[in-house]
């Protein structure tokens, strides 16, 4: 059998195989190199002092506590707003909408939103929230901008999860005399909770990594804010990513930049892992 294959074919196959192994090897090397290098340069600079203080010109110390807090605030504010809207939209699409054209229009809109680059979100967020609604450069304006940006993710994952809820659940509940809202609240939503959680995690990932959309909306301030101050208009604050950018590009303090990069990298991995776990649970349920 084997010797019937001409040398030309064999050589061609061999070349393609080599190219495949080579490409995969290069990509794994890039990955390992990138992760290794960031951790190598960043981890030694993560000190308790860095994590628990704010930058001080007098003592000439740098701390990223404000940036850590700001990132957490932005995540919280964004999720509190985007979750009800996104889950509501998914419920509408999956449970209420009967008109196919309306569904198509909404889906087209979410697809468009998910394709818009973050720098445009930043610009439009500045126009709408910072200027038009005069919230000023603030954590609130930044979070509202991210609400629009993460909305498609929340809608999509919730919708996927709602689709896996068996039709029988709904019919059973309705047959027992439940109203539609009661049915959604007690039967559909509890069964779709894993999709909502996945949407949450993916959104957090997107928020943690976002920088261009926050640069002109949430600002560059490095003050420690309380939770109450964080939601007030006019209180600006830079997230970890924006701080990384400022330290690297504007001030050339690469140790701090790499320390933040290492923190972001670890956060990304944790988020990625948890998203995978919940997605697995979702898939398992879909199979049953």
């Amino acid at each position: 059998m084997q010797d019937k294959i001409s040398t030309k074919r064999k050589v061609k196959s061999a070349i393609l195989n080599i190219l495949m192994y080579l490409s995969s090897g290069i990509i794994c090397l890039i990955f390992l190199g990138l992760v290794g290098y960031i951790l190598y340069r960043g981890l030694p600079h993560i000190t308790p002092q860095l994590l628990t203080s704010k930058p001080s010109l007098i003592r000439e110390t740098v701390g990223i506590l404000p940036n850590i807090l700001n990132t957490i605030y932005i995540i919280l504010i964004t999720l509190v707003i985007v979750l009800p809207i996104g889950v509501g939209a998914a419920i509408y699409l999956n449970e209420y909408a009967e008109n196919k054209r309306k569904v198509r229009i909404i889906e087209l809109a979410t697809e468009t939103l998910s394709g818009i680059p973050s720098i445009i979100y930043g610009l439009v967020g500045m126009l709408i929230f910072v200027q038009f609604f005069s919230l000023g450069t603030s954590l609130l304006a930044g979070s509202l901008t991210l609400v629009i940006m993460t909305l498609p993710t929340v809608i999509r994952t919730t919708q996927e999860s709602l689709k896996t809820v068996p039709q029988g659940y709904r019919e059973g509940s309705l047959a027992l005399g439940a109203g539609k809202w009661y049915m959604i609240r007690t039967v559909v939503l509890p069964s779709a909770i894993d999709g909502i959680v996945t949407g949450c995690i993916l959104s957090i990932g997107r928020i943690v990594g976002e920088s261009a959309a926050l640069l002109f909306t949430a600002g560059m301030a490095n003050e420690v804010l309380g939770l109450v101050d964080a939601v007030k208009p006019g209180n600006a604050g830079s997230s970890l990513t924006v701080a990384l950018y400022m330290y690297a590009k504007e001030r050339g303090e690469f140790e701090i930049a790499f320390a933040i990069a290492a923190i972001l990298l670890v956060l990304t991995f944790v988020i990625n892992l948890s998203a995978k776990l919940t997605a697995k649970m979702l898939k398992k349920k879909g199979a049953n």
Partner: peptide
């Protein structure tokens, strides 16, 4: 293994890519 690395690569924030590119 390759798939996991690719997934992780996609989640790395763009400023981190920028930083490594710069250095």
């Amino acid at each position: 293994t390759v798939r996991t690395s690719v997934d992780l690569l996609s989640g790395i924030p763009s400023v981190v890519y920028g930083l490594v590119g710069m250095i």
